[in-house]
Design a protein around this nucleic acid. Structure first.
Length: 569
RNA sequence: CGGACCGUAGCGCAGCCUGGUAGCGCGUUUGCUUGGGGUGCAAAAGGUCACGGGUUCAAAUCCCGUCGGUCCGACCA
């Protein structure tokens, strides 16, 4: 392919609305163009990489035994009403009406659709296990699209769904997919780490997310350098040492005018935040609860939500706080709240805590010398704070590290949440009707593309892994008017194409510097320079994008092919 | 959905405060020049200043509204 025959439009300057490197490069290299908030057009270069990623996903899914299908992105509302998600998905789902006044959804995911489909197809245990998948555009009305393809309103996702006869078989399928995902990301040149995650509304059982570690990632991940434990901060646990503080005298009230936050109270007492108990009032499914954590810690709302099996869990408003505590916001505490029967949950690390300072449930007052076990009625101690760097690994006790990641894939055990709703059953060997156990498996295809860029770039531009480079090789034809040089370039181009290697020839009437800059910006895996000066000095120059100038090889044209092939492995 | 800011040529921006016939850089086109890391010179094309209303002799500029966009927060199968 000749550069002048395709449509490549690079930008010298960063787009004004891009924040992170990968987003800037996506635009600068001409991979994408923005159409609106969270909406992008893939230009020819981007399209090539995108299709290559899809093909890798397809090959690995097929190899894992999954079957490709394609379902409509436009889905009838009835399916969603059947599982109740028509309501619970809220404003995140694009909804519209057809001319017959029927509500439809632009699919944000497809559990309902696929379960409805398979319910009518599956009848016998002989058909199971079965996994189907599709690579399809998904729609989500994100309140705040961000970071280019990372969080967009329309994106391409591979979504797969498995149907098994029992929990054991479903477990096998789960790990089969898990392994397929490891291969997919490895082949895309992406370092993706599997981490334990929270199921959210999707289901309550086991799930792993695959994260491309990157500072620009939106998710926090706790990981243990010693044993490899890794979990999304939403779920990450920590090991807690047993605590048994020295006995303290009876508690007493202390006036703490205008000291509401832990910082203010800590400075008032001249004590570290760990000497205090932070008490927050939440509302879980309409019922207020109190949550106590050490003063230097934050409540993990996802953990609380799971602990209480709550559908909704959010901080209470000021009025509720006043009703519950009998004091203005800022003075809540676990000792004798106004609402005496309120359930109080405390973090494990507070078990055995004595001599603590807590809010007095009275304006401008705190109480000190609190022994939580003696003075408060704690419903339950549990791990309910967000892990921090330095917390002990729950598996091995080593100090954990905090990292950031981009979620590029997720595998879920769905159980029977959807098969129950749709009555997806099969007959077993004894002709007994049994429910299917489901799993679902997603890969953010467009997000993976950007995650690769985020992980693989330098100050000059993108560094594409060979497997998904728009063209694996770029030939910088420096003297497009020199017949001899053109002949060498044309021959090499043909040799490469005949061998199935993607190659683009920069045949523009431009100075070498322009071609080098663009080749680096777009980041084709291998660059071959063919020019009169080079040929007179012995040949063509070959270098992989991630190699330095010093590592550049100069070889006679007839050896170029072998050297290029070597570099693409 | 709360808070802040921004909409001027394909891209990046200035002009707005203090109203007076719309500018710069990049890119594009043409010619010459240069020819191994975004060459230099010259010429040219390209804008209903987001949209609607108001104030005014006069609005990119001031006021009101709408729409779009960005950031912080909340949310996020």
């Amino acid at each position: 392919m000749k550069w002048t025959k395709t449509l490549i439009n690079t930008l010298r300057e960063d787009p004004g609305d891009a924040e992170i490197d990968s987003h800037k490069l996506l635009m600068r290299a001409g991979i994408c163009r923005k159409n609106g908030a969270g909406l992008f057009t893939f230009m020819p270069l981007g399209m090539r990489s995108l299709r290559k990623i899809e093909q890798i996903v397809r090959e690995e899914m097929n190899r894992a035994g999954a079957l490709e299908i394609l379902m409509p992105a436009l889905q009838p509302a009835e399916l969603w009403q059947k599982t109740g998600r028509w309501d619970t998905m809220g404003a995140n789902m694009f909804r519209l009406k057809d001319r017959g006044d029927h509500f439809m959804a632009m699919g944000p995911t497809a559990e309902e659709e696929v379960t409805d489909l398979m319910t009518n197809i599956i009848s016998s245990y002989r058909q199971l296990p079965v996994t189907v998948y599709q690579i399809q555009t998904k729609f989500r009305d994100e309140t705040r699209p961000r970071f280019g393809l990372m969080r967009s309103k329309e994106f391409i996702m591979k979504d797969g769904y498995s149907f098994d006869t029992d929990a054991e078989a479903a477990d096998k399928t789960y790990w089969n997919m898990y392994k397929a995902y490891e291969k997919i990301f490895a082949r895309c040149g992406l370092k993706a780490t599997p981490v334990q995650a929270d199921g959210g509304d999707m289901g309550d059982s086991m799930t792993h997310e695959f994260h491309a570690l990157a500072d620009a990632g939106e998710d926090g991940i706790a990981s243990c350098p010693s044993c490899g434990y890794a979990a999304n901060l939403e779920r990450a646990e920590r090991k807690i040492e047993e605590r048994n503080d020295a006995e303290c005298p009876a508690y007493e009230k202390v006036a703490t005018p205008n000291s509401r936050t832990i910082e203010e109270v800590a400075s008032f007492f001249s004590l570290p935040p760990t000497s205090f108990v932070k008490t927050l009032v939440y509302v879980a499914d309409g019922t207020p609860v109190m949550v106590c954590v050490p003063g230097d810690r934050d409540v993990n709302e996802v953990k609380m939500k799971r602990l209480l099996s709550a559908k909704s869990f959010a901080l209470a408003d000021a009025r509720t706080v006043e009703e519950v505590t009998g004091a203005p916001v800022g003075f809540a505490g676990p000792v004798k709240p106004a609402k005496a029967d309120i359930k109080i949950y405390a973090d494990f690390s507070l078990k055995g805590a004595r001599g603590m300072i807590v809010g007095a449930n009275e304006g401008d007052s705190h109480i000190k010398n609190v022994d939580l076990a003696r003075d408060a009625s704690i419903e339950q101690y549990a791990d309910i704070v967000i892990c921090g760097a330095g917390d002990m690994c729950p598996k091995c006790g080593a100090k954990m590290e905090l990292k950031r990641g981009i979620e590029v894939g997720q595998v879920f055990k769905l159980g029977t949440k959807y098969s129950d709703a749709f009555h997806t059953v099969y007959k077993d060997e004894n002709a007994t009707e049994k429910i299917c156990i489901m799993g679902c498996y997603g890969v953010g295809v467009t997000r993976t593309l950007q995650a690769v860029i985020e992980q693989s770039h330098d100050k000059d531009g993108i560094i594409w892994p060979a497997s998904i480079s728009p063209y694996q090789v770029v030939i910088d034809l420096l003297d497009p008017d020199n017949e001899e040089v053109v002949k060498v370039s044309d021959e090499l181009e043909k040799t490469l194409e005949d061998a199935g290697i993607d190659v683009i020839v920069d045949d523009r009437q431009d100075r070498p510097g322009v071609k080098f800059k663009d080749a680096d910006l777009i980041g084709f895996t291998v660059r071959v320079v063919v020019g009169a000066k080079g040929l007179s000095k012995g040949g063509v120059e070959i270098k992989r994008r991630d190699q330095s100038k010093e590592e550049m090889k100069i070889v006679p044209p007839d050896q170029a092919f072998d050297v290029i092939k070597e570099l693409l492995v």
